[in-house]
Amino acid sequence: MKNRKQMTYMDSVNHYGRIWCVIMTALLLFVPVLMCLIFHTRPDAKGLALGLLATAPMYWAVGIIEVFTYYPMLGAGGSYLSFITGNISNLKLPCALNSLEQAGCQADSEEGEVISTISIAVSSIVTTVIIIIGVILIVPLTPLLQSKLLAPAFAQMIPALFGGLGIAFISKNVKLSILPLILMTVLFITVPALNAGTVGIMVPVGVLLTLLEARIMYKTGFLYGKNNEQSR
């Protein structure tokens, strides 16, 4: 194992990222344990077992798939931050994508890694601070944020976000985009089980499908012509 002075930036991101993951896991598990100690109580064994049985298999499967899906998009630093602060697809990833676009760099370059990390770190700090302000002002804010006037605006955040983000990426990758866009749209319209609750599960499906299509297009020369080899 390399000592700290021998580590590259990327090595150190993974090294410290792992440490933070372990710290946060221990801390999060300690919270309900601490609650038990403070309130002199214990979990309902049957409720816990049944609750875990109903929830854990799906969540653990999604969690595992999400690591493989989002890590290459978020980069190392961005992943360690995003997987701890959450709200990946509706906040952290769009924020990082916008910053990469703004900076004009690829996600898989070291510059992209640094930009993505900075963007997600700032986003995480701002989110946390806004939630703190929201919690402090929860009494006066509740009627305003849940008012009939503003509720529709927050209910449509995803279409508003992916309209702007989508057009920027789709226009630069038209050949790659057509098939997955059509297929996903048809699937969501025709399969009743696909909705807001299942869109997270469909992200890896969309990603796998697009990767397969991209590989075929790349190998057959449909994306860049037959001279892919020269680019190596």
Binding site: M73, G166, L181, L183, V186, A196, V199, G206, V207
Partner: peptide, 15 residues
């Protein structure tokens, strides 16, 4: 990398 982004965007567009 582009295919990953497009895959994610296509899922949300479908939704």
């Amino acid at each position: 990398s582009n295919a990953l982004f497009i895959g994610m965007i296509s899922a949300f567009v479908g939704y």
